[in-house]
Amino acid sequence: MVALVDDDRTYQFTTEHMLRRLDDQIGFRWFRDGEEAMKFLEMHIMDTSYLPDVIILDINMPYMDGWQFLDAFHVMKTRIGKPIDIYMVSSSLDDRDAIRARSFEEVKDYVEKPITTEKLAAMLQRTHN
């Protein structure tokens, strides 16, 4: 299952669209900000069938942004029933964001928008392996 944490409605639409083209059986969940996602994870912390395998995380979001989500995730990580790969995806071109993202061990990679079907395929591939 893939969870997208991003406040951009259109981005959610295109990402879901591409994922379904790759795999029409894939599970998909959308959270508008870090806090929504965090509440969901907390609620299903041992419920592996509900938990995502991949989280695609935006940086700039209201309420709880990508960095705050990563901090919170780092704390709860050991209690989560299964491994989750986080990919940070942002429209930021700032190198500092990429460097900071990669400094979190939970972050598998930092990807600049626009995201392509190939990049999504690579993420899924890597997680399945």
Partner: peptide
């Protein structure tokens, strides 16, 4: 500005490709 304008532009690029 670049960051904020880049978001919708990226969406347009992706949508056009789709």
């Amino acid at each position: 500005v670049t960051h904020n304008l880049r978001g919708p532009v990226c969406n347009l690029v992706t949508l056009a490709r789709l």
